[in-house]
Design a protein around this nucleic acid. Structure first.
Lengths: 226, 226
DNA sequence: TCACATTTTGTCGAATTCTTCAATTCTCAT
DNA sequence: ATGAGAATTGAAGAATTCGACAAAATGTGA
């Protein structure tokens, strides 16, 4: 892994470099924003540690310029611990903000955390966003539903109810449970509303709504998907 | 976006919830690790703020259990500012570590930063600067758009919206999601603005805006590109 | 400053979706 | 078998949402 360290104070750059090298990272060094951007285009940088106060091009501007084209993780470094500065930096596109003086081990831990997110944990698209139950397939990202390969159009409320039940296959939900989960508030009136939505879902996903294949009722208690 | 806040101190949970709600996040609350894990399976959580000191199941253990199956970003919260604790937490799989007492605005900024990394910035290997969807081709470098080979002139706002949707093909964005991503701030007023931009984009890239080939609406939820 | 392009806001009608209510059917326990 | 409670069904009014248009606000370059 290649890490670019940018600070106009050479001593700081060197000491950070020593700690990172000790963790077997390859370290590139730069002493102002222009140099940093140069290295970023030339080399394959996996993470950047960037000081804010620098001559020529300060850290925030460097970061903003970088974000126009690359999504490399950036940890900002600054002597200023003012909250406003932190917020500015994080808003400008930084992934973390560390104030000087810092504990080298903590910095290394934060580097590792960011690299883990960037490389192994990945982003939202990577994870499994399909819930599959027999011929019933929910895609939680596009909020779509397929039954035996056929696309089925559910309304937003219908989808939310179905996702709740599908996500917790086998678990029993009373009408009130469902209401609380989907509406995020308590149901004051009766539970007819849920019943009607259940019917609509059944009409759409069940071949024979009278003999539900998925969406089953447990008498006197609630609904579930086996 | 859904955020889960976990702390055994209800006052802290409530106050964090207020700040996050103000930023238009949906907030789920839990008061120990067990509850947290329950909600994580039931709901689609996009980020978790997790206190370390908790009864039943402490934050670190909760985090480790979570990491067995999910890669949701986690921000640890702790009264201890010992470096060793920070390092332990970050090593266990956390994405960030904030010590109490904290500045709410900073916490919100860190939440946004993590969500950005998780959702829009994405992970390694996305250097390709052309996004191609059927006859629709976006060049993210020159910020130009072609439809069936024909150049199309989009305004900057229009382009940003289209890129967001194209970059996350299949994923559904509510009007608020789009606003937050493109403007980097919350939408206080209604969602007419997005609707109008969507129409303009459609007028330009769709042959028949009434029957959109690319930019589809999902009633009651939002927009997407299949 | 003015003219022009872009972005944002406000209003309206049509379409879709949600909720309510009443009638009917079904299930379980006796 | 029967009755009470529970679930399903049908229909209709209420509430939302989307898209179209117009117009106001904002930004930009000559």
């Amino acid at each position: 892994m290649n890490i670019l360290v940018v600070d106009d104070d050479r001593e700081i750059v060197d000491s950070i470099a020593i700690f990172l090298s000790g963790e077997n990272y390859t370290v590139f060094k730069a002493y102002d924003g222009i140099e940093a951007l140069d290295i970023l285009t030339e080399k394959d940088v996996h993470l950047m540690i960037l000081d804010i106060m620098m001559p020529k091009l300060d850290g925030i501007r460097t970061l903003m310029k970088l974000r126009e084209s690359k999504n490399v993780p950036v940890i900002l470094l600054s002597a200023k611990s003012e909250d406003a500065d932190k917020i500015l930096g994080l808003t400008a596109g930084a992934d973390d903000y560390v104030t000087k003086p810092f504990n080298p081990s903590e910095l290394v831990a934060r580097v590792k955390s960011q690299l883990r997110r960037y490389t192994t944990l990945g982003s939202i698209g990577k994870q499994n966003n399909e819930i599959s139950i027999d011929g019933l397939v929910l895609n939680t990202e596009s909020k779509t539903v397929k039954v035996d390969g056929e696309d089925v159009r559910l309304t937003s409320t219908e989808y939310k109810i179905l996702e709740l039940l599908a996500r917790n296959r086998g678990r029993l939900f009373s009408a009130d449970d469902i209401y609380r989960n989907v509406w995020n508030e308590d149901n004051i009136v009766g539970d007819k509303t849920i019943a009607v939505h259940i019917r609509h879902i059944r009409e759409k996903i069940e071949i024979n709504p009278k003999e539900p294949r998925y969406l089953k009722v447990v008498w006197g208690i609630g609904y579930k998907i086996d």
